[in-house]
Design a protein around this nucleic acid. Structure first.
Lengths: 224, 224
DNA sequence: TTTTAATGATAGTAATACTATCATATTTAA
DNA sequence: TTAAATATGATAGTATTACTATCATTAAAA
């Protein structure tokens, strides 16, 4: 299956819509590869300009600064997961199975078979694991938040929380559990690969991470 | 109660031990205040030098770069929590109560009454909430890890994991649960204050966060 | 009291994160 | 078809950052 998906982001993450031009698309594609290779801190507009065979000036016409590019990429990720989850759980009736599916979609295999905007899937996953939280852990949160930059994250959390709510209407922390699930799926993946003494997932398989996350989610939902 | 605690860190976080001189202590104290005020990204050696009425050159004799200062501060935090937990749970026999105490110590009230090294407690907490994960989410992890820079975090996780293991010897993810607990205590605190739609803790009280974390931990430990 | 170590003062460099300007190419609209 | 608008390229320049290096001065230790 090769499904083409194009997600349109509507907010002030960018100055000029990168989806609207060839060079804009190259900016996003190359940013994803570069940030995952160099790490966010070592990623610069100069390196990106060289990569897309253009100039810094051009990039600045699309994005105010590199942080906005990171936020844009994370918005792509959140919207993408949102869409994937929506499509996948539609046909499932059992909430337990829905939740298992959500966990499955949050933990990516190396071979993601759904192409999406032509972006490098494994680079995108690397970024959301290692750089994702840097999108909102900054002094500028309040201002970025006012500009609705984290809307896709919030919508994803609310959608997952709604599934939790159906599973257990008495559970009071559905949103917290949803955001915890998303963050933990990244952090535990990172720990199992880079700081293994902070986790007990020696096999380093997506499956073992999914089992751990299931314990967390169903443990909390079925508590008491 | 005013308890004086001095923690000695033994590794290559620093070039010259900041605890060994007045100016060294000022570097740490002011870094804690400055990073919490400006955020890690806007914190520079120049601003720090101005604050301690010294020069950049002097700071470079203590720390290679600002990232090492952040790691040093996080090591202080992890060691401090470790010590607090050790002292607190010694006299508790019931593992359930031990775990509740751990959660209590991870979530700080505004008025921490235990002075520790003369550092500003609320600034230290702010840093570990907002900047903490930046200490290890970097391309340099592997190298920093080889230099044993995350040892205090690992020891804290292993200590908490040991308590979980006594509570439920069959639970297979004690380390992951411990690191999850620590990270979630920071992230959910951050969400409840800055991105409230990602959490359901409208009261924004330490207590409500502790209750949520208890659900996660005991939910997972008592699962099935 | 002499050596050693710590700090201060100063200078300099390469890279980063921008801002600004003008020319040129391309697209669109009158 | 031509004029106007828009997008990009080329280039330059600035303030700040993240260092490295050197030498003088001061304080502490032998």
């Amino acid at each position: 299956m090769a499904l083409e998906v194009v997600l349109k982001l509507e907010n002030s993450t960018y100055l000029k819509d990168p989806q609207g031009s060839e060079i804009g698309k190259k900016i996003i594609k190359s940013s994803i590869v570069l940030i995952s290779e160099l790490g966010y801190e070592h990623f610069t507009f100069k390196k990106l300009a060289f990569e897309i065979k253009s100039t810094e000036a051009t990039i600045y016409r699309y994005f105010e600064n590199k942080h906005k590019i990171l936020v844009y990429i994370m918005e792509l990720y959140w919207s993408y997961i949102h869409l994937q989850v929506l499509m996948a759980i539609r046909e499932i009736n059992d909430t337990h199975k829905k939740i298992e599916k959500i966990i499955d979609l949050l933990v990516w295999e190396d071979n993601q078979d759904v192409s999406f905007g032509g972006y490098d899937q494994s680079s995108l996953y690397k970024i959301c694991i290692t750089e994702g939280s840097k999108a909102f852990l900054s002094k500028e949160v309040e201002s970025l938040n006012k500009q609705k930059l984290f809307e896709p994250y919030k919508e994803l959390v609310e959608m997952i929380a709604a599934v939790f709510k159906v599973h257990n209407p008495d559970f009071k922390y559905c949103r917290s559990l949803a955001s915890s699930l998303i963050e933990l799926s990244h952090f535990q993946y990172y720990f199992m690969h880079h700081l293994p003494r902070l986790a007990d997932l020696p096999e380093k398989t997506p499956k073992s991470l999914e089992i751990y996350l299931s314990h967390i989610v169903f443990g909390a939902l079925n508590f008491r």
